[in-house]
Amino acid sequence: MSSRTVDELDAVIEQVLRDGELVHEHPTPGTWLVDLPGTKKLKTVCGLVVGEHALRVEAFVCRQPDENREQLWTFLLQHNARMYGVSYSIDNVGDVYLTGRLPHAAVTAEELDRILGSVLSYADDHFNTMLEIGFGTSIRREWDWRVKRGESLRNLEAFAAFADPSRRGDAAPAGEE
């Protein structure tokens, strides 16, 4: 059985990206950079690289955590068991990625759409939790600094309940501690 060529795989990838109206770059044959728009993580850049036997999928999720590394790794590994097509991994400095491989024969429009959807979902859905685990002290410090100076909290609003105990739904009413 003959293997699919880079040109054939590029044609499938290009059609999926065009149909999905996804911003992308195609710097060399077999290499694609795709912007996946999210809500919590505003953009996830996903690399697609045609290798000799498989399409490699790789997306940066977040930099190495400042704290609670083992707790974050545990969180990620527990999610890996339930994930489709990609899994969380870390590089040699501890930055978090989503990575996967898809055999050439499985590179179809439907499967590629499913894989890109998985990357977007996993990067976006868990992003704030990853930041709270790995950067909680920094988030709280930044929140407090902005509150004291009357600065905007707009880009930290997703962490309001985490950073400001008075905003938590489970906060005890005044005088009942």
Rank of each mutant, 00 (worst) to 15 (best):
R114S: 14
S118T: 08
S89Y: 01
T129H: 04
S87I: 02
L48S: 10
H126Q: 13
H104R: 05
Q78P: 07
L112T: 04
N92L: 12
S118M: 11
G117Y: 08
A105E: 03
L55Q: 05
V61Q: 01
H104C: 05
V93I: 11
I133G: 02
S118K: 09
G47L: 15
A123S: 06
W73N: 09
A54M: 10
P65R: 08
M130H: 09
I133K: 04
M130A: 07
V61I: 01
L116C: 12
M130T: 05
E67H: 04
I90G: 05
P103L: 03
Y97A: 02
Q64A: 15
R56Y: 12
Y97S: 02
T108A: 07
V86E: 01
D66P: 13
T129G: 06
V49C: 12
S118E: 11
H104T: 06
D125S: 14
V49P: 14
W73M: 15
Y97D: 02
R63G: 15
V61Y: 00
M130N: 07
G134Y: 05
N68K: 07
Q71R: 09
E67N: 05
L72A: 10
R101K: 15
P65Q: 09
P65F: 10
N80M: 01
H104I: 08
Q71G: 11
D66M: 09
V107S: 05
R69L: 15
R56H: 15
S87W: 01
N128E: 13
L102M: 14
L98R: 00
I133N: 04
L112H: 08
R63T: 13
L120Y: 12
N68Y: 06
D66L: 09
Y97Q: 03
A109C: 09
V86N: 01
F75L: 05
M130G: 06
I115C: 11
P65S: 10
R56F: 13
